[in-house]
């Protein structure tokens, strides 16, 4: 019994240390150009993605007349590659690499009544843009937990509306919806530091990683997260492959 209590205490201590490690780690320079790359695969039969009936908005139905729109919760490519997985460094990063948000402006477009891309990854504090290519009105309505410091907002984007430019204060996986078109569903994946999103073949490359030892986390909206340890040193990219198993 005593041992168990000790175990409990040790587990707690480990948790505290791990949480602490997230916040306080050694300083590293962000100047170097290390990379982490790999492939994320799906093992098993991909789950059925429900089709979307867009008939309530004739514009949307017409825009998708030649395709069959479906949900995008799990998108598996022909070679088993898993698309829309966000990869980021969850441990080991600090200093300049964390304090300077990326300066490029990722774009989240509303096209044919769907979000392109379905998952938009970004750095904390990085400016991103929401645009509309559609001739029907959308409202762009992310729903973060305000207790994190990310505040929900809700803006209309009728046809021809100017882009909405925003940023987020804290790391969080934020669901995005359009109340006008209830099937529209996407994500703002807000992470701290360098990140990447897998392409249609499940491939990814995280750039601008200073040399060091890291934990890489792969996040998929319905399959959850996985982690891997990598060491970045010199020019050759560090490798981290992931496999998500079907349920």
């Amino acid at each position: 019994m005593k041992n168990l209590q000790k175990l409990a205490a040790v587990l707690m201590a480990v948790m505290v240390v791990l949480c602490g490690a997230l916040l306080l780690t050694h300083e590293v320079s962000a100047a170097s150009e290390g990379k982490i790359s790999g492939t994320v695969k799906y093992e098993g039969t991909p789950p059925h993605m429900r089709g979307i009936d867009m008939s309530k908005d004739p514009y949307c139905a017409k825009a998708n007349a030649s395709t069959s729109p479906h949900m995008e919760n799990v998108v598996v490519g022909s070679g088993g590659g898993l698309e829309n997985v966000v990869l980021y460094i969850s441990e080991g990063l600090s200093g300049a690499a964390l304090s300077q948000p990326a300066t490029n402006v990722p774009v989240f477009d509303q096209k044919n009544c769907e979000y392109t891309p379905h998952v938009l990854a970004m750095d904390v504090g990085q400016t991103f843009k929401v645009t509309t290519s559609d001739q029907t009105a959308h409202n762009i309505h992310p729903n973060p937990n305000p207790m994190t410091g990310n505040i929900p907002w809700n803006q209309s984007q009728p046809p021809g509306a100017p882009p909405v430019e925003k940023s987020w204060k804290a790391p969080e996986m934020i669901e995005v919806k359009c109340n006008i078109h209830p099937w529209m569903h996407g994500w703002f994946a807000v992470v701290k530091g360098p990140y990447a999103t897998t392409d249609a073949n499940g491939n990814y490359t995280i750039s601008n990683v200073p040399p060091g030892n890291y934990t890489v986390t792969a996040w998929q909206e319905t399959l959850g997260t996985q982690t891997a340890k990598v060491t970045v040193s010199g020019a050759a990219p560090a490798k981290a492959d992931f496999t998500f198993k079907g349920k």
Binding site: N139, H141, P152, W153, N154, Q155, S156, P158, A161, I180
Partner: peptide, 14 residues
């Protein structure tokens, strides 16, 4: 301003 917490968005930009 929109009604935050509901589907009613802000139209201030448009």
């Amino acid at each position: 301003t929109g009604l935050d917490g509901t589907p009613m968005p802000s139209f201030a930009d448009n």
